[in-house]
C-alpha cells in the first residue's frame, strides 16, 4: 500500500510546483495537544486505550497547504495476561501537510510520515533481558522504533486573536511485523500564532 501512496505523491508533486504565490513560512504557530488513542483491529487485544499529550508546530507553506510537526508522549498498558512488562513508553514524531480546501473549510485534511520510539517499562532487577527476549513483550526491553504514515482531520473550533482551539482526529499505520499496526487518536489542541 505504502509504495502506491508514494508513487502518487511522486507523480503529483510537479503539480504543486506550479503555484505562484509565495506564502512559505509567512505564518508560524505553536500548540499543545492532548487526547486519547484507540488501537484498531486485533491490536485491541494487545494494548489498552491510552492518553497522549504533546506539542505541535505548524507553518504556512503553499497557498492552501500548511506543513506541521507534532511530538507526543503516551504510555500503553498491555492487555494479555502473562506479559511481564508493566507497559510501554511511546514517543511519536510526525511530519505532514494539511490541505485546506475551500469546499470543506474550516476543516483541513492532512497526511504525512510518523516515527515512533518505544521502550518497555519493567523492573530491571526482576527481569533477565536475555532469557526474556523470546517472551511476549520481550523485544520492548530494548529500544524499538518503527516508521509509518498517517492521515488526519483538523477542525478549528474557536478563534480569538492569536489563539485557536480545535479538534484533531488522526489515523496512523505503523509498518510493523507480522502485520501493520493501526491506531486512531482523537484530541483537542490550543494553538497560538507566533507571526
Amino acid at each position: 500500500m505504502k509504495r502506491w501512496l508514494l508513487a502518487l505523491v511522486l507523480c503529483l508533486s510537479p503539480v504543486f510546483a506550479q503555484h505562484p504565490a509565495d506564502s512559505a513560512f509567512s505564518h508560524i504557530y505553536v500548540s499543545i495537544e492532548g487526547g486519547e488513542q484507540y488501537p484498531f483491529g486485533d491490536l485491541i487485544d494487545a494494548v489498552e486505550n491510552s492518553f497522549y499529550g504533546g506539542v505541535g508546530f505548524r507553518y504556512a507553506y503553499l497557498e492552501n497547504i500548511d506543513g506541521f510537526i507534532l511530538f507526543d508522549y503516551s504510555y500503553f498498558k498491555p492487555v494479555p495476561e502473562g506479559v511481564k512488562i508493566y507497559g510501554a513508553h511511546q514517543f511519536s514524531g510526525k511530519l505532514g501537510l494539511d490541505f485546506k480546501w475551500k469546499a470543506i473549510a474550516p476543516l483541513a485534511i492532512g497526511a504525512g510520515f510518523v516515527c515512533d520510539w518505544v521502550r518497555g517499562d519493567y523492573d530491571e532487577d526482576k527481569l533477565d533481558e536475555i532469557s526474556f527476549s523470546n517472551d511476549l513483550g520481550g523485544t520492548l526491553t530494548d529500544n524499538e522504533t518503527e516508521f509509518g504514515w498517517f492521515a488526519r482531520l483538523n477542525l478549528p473550533l474557536i478563534r480569538k486573536e492569536t489563539y485557536k482551539v480545535g479538534f484533531n482526529a488522526l489515523w496512523k499505520e505503523l509498518w510493523t511485523l507480522p502485520k501493520r499496526s493501526e491506531t486512531l487518536s482523537v484530541g483537542v489542541y490550543v494553538e497560538r500564532r507566533i507571526w
Partner: peptide, 16 residues
C-alpha cells in the same frame, strides 16, 4: 536515526 522496517512494537504482546 533509522530502522529496518518490521519491528513488532505492540504486536509483540500478541505474537507468541
Amino acid at each position: 536515526s533509522g530502522n529496518e522496517l518490521g519491528d513488532m512494537i505492540y504486536r509483540d504482546f500478541i505474537t507468541a
